[in-house]
Design a binder for these strands. Structure first.
Lengths: 139, 139
DNA sequence: GTAGGATCTAGAGCGCACTCTAAGGCAAAC
DNA sequence: GTTTGCCTTAGAGTGCGCTCTAGATCCTAC
């Protein structure tokens, strides 16, 4: 038996107790949380694992509504694997697109960092061919 | 001369005219926008370029407040390259962390997609060693 | 017995980034 | 001359994801 209080789950997951209750209200838990004496929530390891998945999906930009939808499919049991796949694949596409965006941004930043480092003499030389950027013009 | 109306800039950047005015109010423009007849905004290519930078920074999760700060440094002219570098490097760290998160999420999704494809017989075989995931348990 | 600390519920509040509304100005087309 | 369409302003509204408050209950320690 591994009954965890909401406080313990908060500590383990990094979510606040407020957020844990909020996620539950929002239907993000795969199973209804057990209740112990005095009506206190009692979580088990499966709950923590599932929350870990939710956290990862959130961190990658999946809206709560989509996580809820996925959770509902899981809760409904076998027979809807096609829909689950659809949700996952859609999200994967979005994550890949997001990653591409980040890479483009990294290129831009690296370019600008290079310009400033050159200007500050932090690098060996100031390349004559450095493209003229917005920042080179006084405001 | 290349005077662009707010509508044209909206079309080019993909931002709405509302958002363009909003960004201006928020101090995200490197130069004050010129005004033409009847007080209409007149943008030039530099403005569009700068907006492109802002869009990229936003897309990678930089808050408007940070973009404003960076814009203010640029607007102030030469002499604050160190601060600009600091802003950029800080953001780069955040982008890298974000990319790492996305990669972790991709791992998770790929793993789950594999499980479902196997279950659906979309792949050659169902591996016996497939880890038991939350979803394998009925709700 | 009482103080402290964790928990409970229902519901209000907040921060961010837009997004839209209302009321009006100007200019070209019909 | 009036309709159409793009522009202006100030300010209100929206959606999301939390985050917090109030007031109550319960358990443990002193």
């Amino acid at each position: 038996m591994s009954g965890l209080s909401i406080g313990q789950v908060a500590e383990r997951t990094g979510l606040s107790v407020h957020t844990l209750r909020f996620y539950e209200r929002e239907g993000l838990l795969a199973q209804p949380v057990r209740r112990g004496a005095a009506g206190h929530r009692v979580y088990d390891e499966d709950d923590v694992d599932w929350l870990g998945v939710c956290i990862r999906l959130r961190a990658s930009g999946m809206p709560l509504a989509d996580i809820r939808r996925y959770t509902e499919l899981v809760r409904a049991g076998q027979g809807n694997e096609v829909e689950r796949l659809e949700v996952l694949r859609e999200h994967r596409e979005r994550v890949l697109a997001q990653r591409h965006e980040l890479d483009e941004c990294l290129k831009l930043i690296t370019h600008k960092v290079g310009i400033y480092e050159s200007r500050l003499g932090l690098r060996g030389h100031v390349p004559d061919c450095a493209p003229l950027s917005q920042e080179t013009k006084p405001g």
